[in-house]
């Protein structure tokens, strides 16, 4: 029953194929590139953000209208976040943090629209985003600080004979960052959408199985689904915020590597 299958919403389907590299021409062999529903919603997300920001800031009024105020508030919110976590020196990464925040936020909000695909419910998408942050931190850290960036793995004030134990632990802790960053976003969104679908699926099943009694009983899952919908909007916003804040903190490590 596809109607109540909670996993069905995450299926990726091709909209139009682009190319297949290698393989012997049979189904499923070689590297298959296609414009999928996931890609469509990524493009839509970027288009909506760009259009909104361009249109709302094109007036450039001294006294902003509603749309301009909204985009200015978004700017101020992200700028304050970058300044407080990474200092004024972190403002050169403002475009990166702003793009990540708005992309995740709008993608999560898109995911709440019925029949829309949720881009951030696939771990490869969130992992790519977090690897982007991780690699930026490593490259910028080495360019800015040179070899002294490695001091990040040597906490200050630790006696020399403990260092062989502490340094590998610090390295593992550092390497775990992109994984925890991506799993948190992906897990929250995936779990939320599955629970939402399960509860709404209960309603359909109850009505199908119990008839008139089911109509009355399905009020309970309906109430739960309404509450969960509100919670999901909150989770989507909070996770975008958390991702952006942690990006700022990791960038702060690259800018000032001493613990």
């Amino acid at each position: 029953m596809a109607g109540t299958d909670p996993i069905h919403q995450f299926v990726i389907s091709d909209i139009f194929p682009i190319a297949t590299i290698g393989g012997d021409g049979t189904e499923g062999s070689g590297l298959h590139f296609a414009f999928t529903n996931s890609a469509l919603f990524m493009v839509l997300t970027v288009a909506v953000i760009s259009l909104f920001l361009i249109l709302s800031s094109s007036g450039r009024k001294v006294i902003p209208g509603r749309a301009q105020l909204l985009s200015e508030l978004t700017y101020e919110f992200v700028a304050g976040m970058v300044r407080s976590s990474a200092g004024t020196a972190g403002m050169k990464f403002f475009p990166l943090v702003f793009s990540l925040f708005t992309f995740i936020f709008v993608a999560n909000m898109f995911g709440m629209v019925p029949y829309f695909f949720t881009v951030t419910s696939h771990i490869i998408v969130t992992f790519a985003l977090s690897m982007l942050v991780f690699i930026t931190v490593i490259i910028y850290g080495f360019i800015k600080n040179g070899a002294s960036f490695l001091k990040l793995f040597v906490p200050a004030g630790v006696p020399g004979y403990i260092l062989p134990i502490v340094t590998p632990i610090e390295v593992i802790s550092f390497l775990s960052r992109p994984i925890s960053l991506s799993v948190r976003l992906f897990g929250n969104i995936l779990a939320g959408h599955i629970t939402l679908k399960v509860f709404t699926g209960f309603m359909v099943m109850m009505i199908g199985a119990l008839g008139a009694l089911g109509w009355g009983a399905s009020i309970l899952p309906l109430l739960m689904a309404i509450a969960l919908t509100g919670l999901e909007f909150l989770v989507g916003a909070v996770q975008a915020y958390v991702f952006a804040v942690l990006t700022c903190m990791y960038l702060n490590d690259a800018i000032h590597p001493s613990h």
Partner: peptide
């Protein structure tokens, strides 16, 4: 601004944050 920019995270978000930090390090190790 820096004082305002630290709103209280919900308990769920806090718990998930701690959980993923812990599990991710074990997986990487």
């Amino acid at each position: 601004a820096s004082k305002d920019a630290s709103p209280e995270m919900s308990g769920l978000a806090r718990g998930l944050r701690i959980g993923t930090e812990f599990v991710a390090a074990i997986l990487v190790g």
